[in-house]
């Protein structure tokens, strides 16, 4: 076993074990921290595959930004233990299992049908290529996404106003 395989399995464990811990943990703040470990593990997998920019973006956006906001929200709520068996109630069980199984099969299908590259290519800098693509071939989706995000930002600010009518006090 070479060092790459060892690192891969270590990272895979780092992604899956915390994911399970999120499900079975009783403490909601612990869940948030476990989620963080999963996200770091995913970033590590990206880096292992040579996607350096993507991996760092994962850390920058998800671990450094979104997780902090998540924790921020959770810490201000009450801190009661969350029990899995209370969350999973009998009438909800069937639809939940159906949707879960469906997602699982879709992903399994994608996993099996994809032709995985067997011969790894020498990694190169991905950031310049990404930049070129975003401003040439994929400029339209890129612009649409940015406009959608702007709309979301304005909408969130509007809803978060105290009176909700939108006129400044």
């Amino acid at each position: 076993m070479n060092w790459e395989a060892i690192i891969f399995w270590a990272l895979a464990t780092m992604v899956i074990a915390p994911a399970l811990a999120i499900v079975f943990s009783k403490n909601i703040v612990h869940m948030a921290f476990w989620l963080l470990a999963t996200l770091v593990g995913v970033a590590g997998l990206y880096l292992l595959m040579g996607a350096d920019f993507l991996g760092m973006t994962q850390i920058f956006v998800y671990v450094g930004g979104i997780s902090v906001l998540l924790l921020f929200g959770i810490m201000l709520t009450n801190n009661e233990p969350v029990y899995l068996r209370k969350l999973v109630k009998r009438p909800k069980l069937l639809p939940a299992l159906t949707v879960g199984a469906l997602v699982f099969f879709v992903m399994l299908r994608a996993l099996v049908s994809t032709e995985w590259a067997q011969n790894p290519v020498e990694p190169e800098a991905t950031a310049p290529a990404l930049g070129m693509y975003l401003l040439s071939e994929f400029i339209l989706p890129f612009e649409i996404v940015s406009v959608v995000l702007l709309v979301v930002l304005i909408g969130a600010a509007f809803i978060a106003r105290r009176d909700g009518t939108g006129d400044p006090k």
Binding site: M56, T57, F60, G65
Partner: peptide, 25 residues
């Protein structure tokens, strides 16, 4: 000499907030 060095520093720098929040809670 990382080709995304400056981005790397910005990204890992943002991890500090996690530790601070963890300490506080």
């Amino acid at each position: 000499d990382l080709n995304i060095g400056i981005f790397f520093i910005a990204a890992v720098g943002s991890l500090e907030a996690i530790g601070v929040v963890m300490a506080g809670w």
